[in-house]
Structure formats: C-alpha cells, structure tokens
Simulated scan of single mutants.
Amino acid sequence: IYYRGSLIGVKNINLITDKNIKVATKIESVIPVLVTGLVLVFIAEMILLLIFKKITLNTFLKLFAMSIIFLSLFYPWWSLYATNDQPIVEKTTEMFIIPQVMIEQTRYSQATYFELATVPEIFTSFLGGLLIIICSGIFLIGLSFIPNIFYKKRYSTILISASVLFFIIVTLSYIFGMSKLTELSLGSLQGEGVLDVVLPDQTTVYMNANWGLGIGFYLVSLAVLIMIFAGVIDYLKKLKKSSKFF
C-alpha cells in the first residue's frame, strides 16, 4: 500500500472471491493525541473551577472520572513487548477497544512492519459489547448531574451507583475474556517469558517478552476508584447533615 508515493503497509493475501481486507499501516492516527490534548485542557479547566469554588469537589471528581474513561477508549487495554539482540528485533502488540483490533508492530532490519493480529470474531464482538457498556456508564454519570440540578440527590446517587456497577462489570469481564484469549497463546493474562516469533522474512527467533493489561484498562480502573471516592464523600456529607438534626 502506497500513500503519496511512499510505502506505508504490506500484506500478503490470497483472494478467491471479493473480500474487504483490513491492513495496518505505519501512518499513526492523530485521534489519540487530539483526544489526550482536549481531555487535559478540560481537566485543567475543571481544576481552575474547583480552585475558585465554581464547582463542588463531588462534581469535579465525576467530571474527572468521565474524562479518564473517555480517554481510556483510545489507549491499549492490553499490550505485549518483546526484544531480541541477535538479530536486533522489537515487537509490540496492543489491543484496543476503539477500534476492536489487536495491532502488531515489528522493528527488524531497519524497517517497521505492522500487522493486524488474528482475533476470534466472538472476541471482537465481546469488545464491542464492552464498548456499549462503557458508553452507557458515561451516559449515566452525565445523567447524574440532572438530579443534582433539581436537588434530587437520591436519584443522583442511584445513577452514580449504577455507573460504578457498569464499569466494575466492564473491568471484570475484560479480565475474564482477555484471560481466555491469552491462555491459548501465552498461558496467562500477565507475565513474562521467552516467545518464538515469526519475523516478516518468515524466519523464527526467540525473544524475551513481557505482557499484561494496558494503560486503557488502568485508566478505567482509576475512574472507578474516583467515583467510589466521590460516593463516599456524598455519604459522609449526608451523615453530617443528618447528625445536625439530632
């Protein structure tokens, strides 16, 4: 595949009938960088509003959690890194939620090769389902601001609790699903060891590798903790208010 006269991707395929083929190229998407920049600006604005007491700590925490969750969708949820000295080879594999793909990158012989890893269709459908749950959780967090506006705190608590439950389901489901997938090839969800890797020239080398959950997964986990913390603050405030009546 060429772009403006430059080779950006290579894939060997055998076609018998018409078929759409996805190919990974070396042109990096600007979306993760753009999203990261926008999220950081948004968080900075929220910090300023909190400092000047324009928003409450609880509101800040919920907005912060929403930002982190949104950011996590554009970062890998699982990754593998492998190296070898003779010959000099580096291999990186990353699993994404958006889009639901696993991308392999191999640096070898002063060239970089990209490949879409073969992932069972049932697993990509599973990731699509998780994405729907994540979006639903973000929607519930946003919806929780409406009861706050009309001073219906009880409904806000219910919505936040539901969103926390959604994200706990996402994290546990992802761990379970990814564990089943990695058990087939690596033996575990997280770990390290020596792997035999087939290079682009079809030679096989043994590489020292480590693999595990990626930054996207940890961002969602952090957001869950933040929302739980926000819920604890709300609960303590309610206790403090109720104690004033006695």
Rank of each mutant, 00 (worst) to 15 (best):
V164D: 04
L219V: 10
E121A: 08
A223P: 07
K180I: 12
N148C: 11
G214N: 08
C135P: 04
L236M: 10
I228S: 06
M227A: 05
N210E: 13
Y235D: 05
G191Q: 04
V224L: 06
S144N: 09
E115M: 12
F114D: 03
S221I: 15
Y174Q: 10
Y174H: 11
F114L: 07
G214A: 05
V197T: 09
T204S: 06
E115R: 14
Y206D: 10
T112W: 02
V232D: 02
Q110E: 12
L239A: 10
L131D: 11
I233R: 03
Q110T: 10
L239C: 09
D234A: 11
S156H: 14
L213P: 05
A111D: 05
Q202P: 01
L239M: 13
L140P: 08
K180R: 10
Q202C: 04
P200D: 00
A162Y: 09
A230I: 09
A223N: 07
V119H: 00
G191V: 05
T118Y: 10
S125M: 12
L165T: 15
Q110S: 14
A223T: 09
L199N: 00
I141P: 11
T182W: 01
A230V: 08
F176W: 15
I226R: 02
L181C: 03
Q202A: 07
E192K: 12
S179M: 03
L213A: 03
T204A: 04
P200C: 01
T124L: 01
G191F: 00
V170N: 07
L172I: 15
S185H: 11
D196S: 12
A230M: 04
L189I: 07
I146Y: 14
Q110N: 14
A117S: 10
V164C: 04
L219M: 15
N208P: 01
I169T: 14
V198E: 02
L213G: 05
L225E: 07
D196H: 12
W211T: 00
Q190A: 13
S185P: 05
I226Q: 04
L130A: 05
A230Q: 09
I160E: 13
V220A: 03
I233Q: 00
F176I: 14
V232S: 03
S161T: 15
S163M: 08
E183Q: 12
F166P: 08
G142M: 05
S179V: 01
G214Y: 06
L222F: 13
L181I: 06
G128R: 04
